[in-house]
Design a protein around this nucleic acid. Structure first.
Length: 250
DNA sequence: GCCAACGTTGGC
DNA sequence: GCCAACGTTGGC
């Protein structure tokens, strides 16, 4: 049951029931630990059950589990930029179309949506590390042309993903209890389209080249952890991807 | 549609 | 706690 990619609850494009209050719920105390230990361990390339299953982490939470579980062990300064995957083409999952493209995001009220359906502990921990105002690339996956389509920003920090409790939802998780939710989501708002679509293939060719030259994309998570649906980018990675907008497609 | 990569589950 | 079997992700 790993479902790292965003799925809209119910029909895509329609209101999803979590837009109403979010823009006005501005959490205080924004400047806390920025990075989870999992992040650090994760990036080191180790892979163990404990690290990936986040269950241990879930136990180590303080009074604000949705936001702080991942930040218990702070490393430092790893990331305030993100990449989030979503499928822009129709695909049925338990009879529900999980399509959600950047155009769909633009069409939402306030161009904002809750990023529900993430069912992978590592991805969830990254969601919980996200801070208000941070920027994320909207990545189109599992489609004709995978790649980075645009930019969005975090407008509400992690809170419980209501779809985990909805039996009819494709991402229903019977093992999660209302008084101790397992899964989190954030709200994101459309910022802009990329000036041009940045295809995965192009990113990959830079990644390959940079592995040899030590360039900015040499360790990009998109390639080192190909299945992770929510991933951090370093400042250098983020800036480099943005710089590609100005270049000719390669 | 294929299948490599890789996360999760559960028996032991 | 190990690890084989299984299921999913997602590029191609």
């Amino acid at each position: 049951m790993s479902r790292p990619r965003k799925r809209l609850a119910g029909t895509s494009g329609s209101g999803n029931g979590c837009d109403a209050q979010r823009l006005f719920a501005i959490p205080g105390g924004v400047l806390k630990n920025r990075n989870p230990l999992v992040t650090d361990k994760g990036l080191s390339g180790k892979r163990t059950k404990t690290e990936n299953s986040g269950e241990a982490l879930a136990e180590v939470e303080d009074s604000n589990p949705q936001k702080t579980s991942a930040t218990k062990n702070c490393v430092k300064n790893l990331s305030s930029h993100w990449l989030m995957k979503s499928e822009p083409e129709s695909r049925l999952e338990k009879g529900v179309d999980v399509k959600f493209s950047i155009e769909d995001l633009k069409a939402q009220p306030k161009q904002t949506t809750c990023w529900d359906g993430v069912r992978n502990y590592q991805a969830r921990n990254f969601l919980r590390a996200m801070k208000l105002g941070e920027e994320a690339f909207f990545y189109h996956s599992n489609c004709k042309e995978p790649g980075i389509a645009g930019l969005m920003k975090i407008v509400k920090e992690a809170y419980p993903d209501h779809t985990q409790f909805e039996k009819s939802n494709p991402h229903y998780d019977p093992s999660s209890k209302e008084d101790n939710p397992k899964w989190s989501m954030v709200d994101v708002q459309f910022v802009r389209m990329m000036k041009r679509f940045i295809p995965l293939a192009e990113l990959k060719s830079y990644h390959q080249a940079h592995k040899a030259t030590g360039g900015p994309l040499k360790n990009m998570t998109l390639f080192s952890r190909q299945r992770l649906s929510i991933q951090p980018l370093t400042q250098e990675e983020f800036d480099f991807v943005l710089s590609l907008e100005e270049k000719e497609p390669s």
